[in-house]
Design a protein around this nucleic acid. Sequence first.
DNA 1: TTGTAAGCGTTATCAC
DNA 2: GTGATAACGCTTACAA
Lengths: 340, 340
Amino acid sequence: MSSLRSIPTLDDVARAAGVSTATVSRCLNSPDRVIEKTRIKVMAAVEQLGYTPNFGARAMAAKRTFTIGAIIPTMENAIFARGLQAFQEALHARGYTLLVSSSGYKADVEAEQIRALVARGADGLLLIGRDRDPSIYEFLQHRSVATLIAWTFEKGSTQPSIGFDNHAAMKALATAVIGKGHQHIGLISGIIEGNDRAAGRYAGICDALRAHGLDATAMPIIETPYEVENGAAAFADMMQRTPRPTVVMCGNDVLAVGAMKRARDMGLRVPEDVSITGFDDIELARIVTPELTTMHVPHRDMGQRAGEELVNMLEGTSAGSVVELECALKLRASLGPPPA
Amino acid sequence: MSSLRSIPTLDDVARAAGVSTATVSRCLNSPDRVIEKTRIKVMAAVEQLGYTPNFGARAMAAKRTFTIGAIIPTMENAIFARGLQAFQEALHARGYTLLVSSSGYKADVEAEQIRALVARGADGLLLIGRDRDPSIYEFLQHRSVATLIAWTFEKGSTQPSIGFDNHAAMKALATAVIGKGHQHIGLISGIIEGNDRAAGRYAGICDALRAHGLDATAMPIIETPYEVENGAAAFADMMQRTPRPTVVMCGNDVLAVGAMKRARDMGLRVPEDVSITGFDDIELARIVTPELTTMHVPHRDMGQRAGEELVNMLEGTSAGSVVELECALKLRASLGPPPA
DNA sequence: TTGTAAGCGTTATCAC
DNA sequence: GTGATAACGCTTACAA
């Protein structure tokens, strides 16, 4: 019975094909270094026995796994989904496997997962954002794990990275908002501590305000984890402030959508009574009514290029570059002029 | 310089602590089998050297990895996110690590990923739905990888599984729809081939129709992958059919939301001109306007219990049970009576 | 309680 | 082109 047969090893295949284990290994890894006749014989044995290489053994002997790990802050909303999908596809096309973990925006969980992935032999890692305990980067370097930072770009950074300038992008969005005539902006931000993207976006708004002679320190700001419910709660809170903001800018679309929902529940019309903006331009942004003014982030492009870059780093084709991607302002119905 | 030091092994730790590798191994795996004094000495060395066990070697020697794999059809929308998050938390609490892959609803990709995860030593696997080439189950059994099927329940199934009755749930929803007076239902379904959940939901609607003396074979049906855009396109198509459906039931919330968006773009009011229903009750369902009538699936509960069950199976506490979870009808504004 | 040593299943370096 | 054989880093009887 097949279920009694134990798991076949290289040795079993070699025996069945009447060759050495070295030859079987070659057939699997560099088929061209083996004469066709032998190869066919070996492959038949592989097939017949249902052989699958043991990954641990292979990793140990080859010091290479063709596996790349990615740790994203969350899978619960779509922010990283698109980019990750594209990343995965790019890796797959180059023969690599992607393993994903999510940290729930918790630094210690992330550190643990980085170790887990490295211990499992990940050749490379995709990390989101740059704010991280330095010891982690030391560890990664020590283990010579190729590491690429995504979702953020910083001029003159030394870390290989691909992303966009969160600061500049949010500044552009805020500038557009101010251009509509708004003087009272309220900000619902993600948790800024340990999150350079959130920090950059916040700073971008302040910059825009200052550039227009407005007082950035007066801006009401609520920090809360990126969840719809939190956006809703923060919005309600924000509407109590004095002076009441005429526009609520949100750190991402998820918060913004929560804010819009609460506005609706509170009987406030968007944008007649209050304007709302997001960031990311995930699918959600065009599903809600009214459609959300937001900053488009090239998720797919970023993911795909991240995949290619990481593979290139692994294969020595690239030393790890720093690439900046462009965002695009999406002016939609949720932003209007301030109420008269 | 620390970056010149090579990666420490058990041997290095043993040498540094002045004990054997066996003792170090014991300190790490069964600390109580080692006298405190030695343990302290060893742990200090571990710490000082920054030692991390090599996973491949450990897996090979111990034939156990405390790793569980999950393969979900997609990460691009939130359908599986909630459940997976809860699953992950449950595993983490029991000391297991979760590795996730997504198959893009493609059977061959899934098969490949199953092999990849098993080769990496996954002790157990979480799979979505039961439709799958039998050889996969044979393979899994042969490798004695504990496997749990989620998101679906079938009475009398022999596979360990946890889920809900897609057929009964959709039948209940359809019954509610018919109860509102609808005679012309259009269905926008996910791809049914190879997807028992989609198939069950379809059959459930047919059942409900028949139970009310309506002709199920006359129901217009469009099959399309679960994406917002596809839901929108299918809806437009559906509105051309004669007789025009008074309600469009969708295979899940993602399709439904796409349909709602298109309805709005076409100038059709929901539910005055046409009703729309979904399935899953993901967050999205209550974000859209009007809120979506749908079937609530206990995602978190399912994920959490799946995690516990799988660990129990691994640790011999459970032989693998078949558990059914209840869904709950959510009647919201997107469903109304048919237009006069 | 601790040490010795035999695997675990590959890959890679040599010879042949 | 192919075959021995030595790593690779760890766990686990078995001995001491």
